[in-house]
C-alpha cells in the first residue's frame, strides 16, 4: 500500500504537553507541514509567545526565539529587518496577542512588516487556569467570570482580525479553524498563502485560527469542538477578511 499521510519530518519526537484534543497540536502540525512543503526549514525563524504554546520550539524543528509576553511582533520585526531573506512568523495566543501585546501587534501591522502572524484564539487564558480573556464571549463562564462575562462589568469581546484588516500595511487577513478535516485543509491553504506573501514582500499576513480550549472550557475535546461551532463561529465568522 502507498503511504498517503504521515507525520511531518519537521515535527520532533517529543510528545506535546498540550491537553488531549488541544487545537495547538493541530496548528503546530500545519505549520510544520507547510514549512516542509515549501522547503524552508533552514530559512524559517519562528517567534513563540508566552502562553500554552511557549514550548512550540520543542515540537517544530526550525529556529525559534521565545519573546516576552505580547512582544512577539516586536521581536519578529527586529529579526526580519536584520535578516530580510529569512521567513519570519509569530505564533501567539489571544492572551498574548490581543491583551498584553495589542500595541506591538497593531503597530507591526501598520508598518507592514513582511512577517506572518499566526493568532490562535480560544477565548480564554488556558495556561494559567482558564481566566477571562479580552476575546471571551459575552455570557461565557471562566475562572474570573464565574457568572458569565457581562458587558457592563467586563466590556465586550473584540475582533482583532477585523481591526487589523483596516490597516494598509496588512496584505492578507483570514480567520480559520481546525475543528474538522475540511477546516484543517482550508487553514493549511491559508497558512501557505500567508507564508508566500511574506516571501514575496507583500506586507504582513494575519492568520487567526479560532480554536478550542477544552480544559479551560470544562468540556471534552469533541464537545468543545461542537460548542465552538455553535457559539464561537457566529461571533468570530470564518473566512478571508482581506
Amino acid at each position: 500500500m502507498d503511504k498517503v499521510y504521515g507525520r511531518s519530518s519537521l515535527l520532533t519526537d517529543n510528545v506535546m504537553h498540550y491537553c488531549p484534543g488541544c487545537s495547538h497540536g493541530t496548528i503546530h502540525k500545519l505549520v510544520a507541514e507547510t514549512i516542509e512543503e515549501m522547503g524552508l526549514q533552514s530559512e524559517t525563524i519562528g517567534i513563540s509567545p508566552v502562553g500554552c504554546s511557549v514550548f512550540a520550539y520543542n515540537y517544530v524543528d526550525i529556529d525559534w526565539i521565545q519573546a516576552a509576553h505580547g512582544r512577539a511582533c516586536a521581536v519578529a520585526t527586529a529579526v526580519k529587518r536584520l535578516q530580510p531573506d529569512k521567513m519570519v512568523f509569530t505564533y501567539q495566543g489571544d492572551g498574548d496577542l490581543s491583551a498584553i501585546g495589542t500595541g506591538e501587534t497593531i503597530h507591526a501591522c501598520n508598518r507592514g512588516e513582511n512577517i506572518v502572524v499566526i493568532y490562535v484564539n480560544n477565548a480564554i487564558y488556558g495556561m494559567t487556569g482558564g481566566q477571562m480573556a479580552p476575546t471571551t464571549l459575552l455570557g461565557m463562564k471562566t475562572a474570573t467570570s464565574p457568572h458569565g462575562r457581562e458587558a457592563a462589568i467586563h466590556g465586550y469581546p473584540y475582533k482583532i482580525a477585523e481591526m487589523v484588516s483596516l490597516l494598509d500595511g496588512v496584505c492578507f487577513v483570514t480567520r480559520q479553524s481546525v475543528h474538522s478535516p475540511a477546516a484543517v485543509r482550508k487553514a493549511k491553504k491559508a497558512l501557505r498563502r500567508a507564508f508566500e506573501n511574506a516571501q514575496a514582500g507583500m506586507g504582513l499576513s494575519f492568520v487567526e485560527i479560532v480554536s478550542s480550549c477544552n480544559s479551560g472550557w470544562k468540556q471534552s475535546p469533541v464537545e468543545a469542538n461542537h460548542w465552538m461551532e455553535e457559539n464561537m463561529f457566529p461571533f468570530y465568522k470564518l473566512g478571508d477578511l482581506k
Binding site: M1, D2, K3, V4, Y5, G6, R7, S8, L11, V15, M16, Y18, P20, G21, C22, S23, H24, G25, T26, K29, V178, H179, S180, P181, V184, R185
Partner: peptide, 20 residues
C-alpha cells in the same frame, strides 16, 4: 478507504494512512 480525515484532525500527529 484511506481518506486520511482522521490523521488530518489528529492534534498529536499519531496516525499514518496507507491506501491502495
Amino acid at each position: 478507504t484511506g481518506c486520511a480525515n482522521c490523521a488530518v484532525v489528529c492534534p498529536d500527529g499519531c496516525i499514518e494512512v496507507f491506501r491502495k
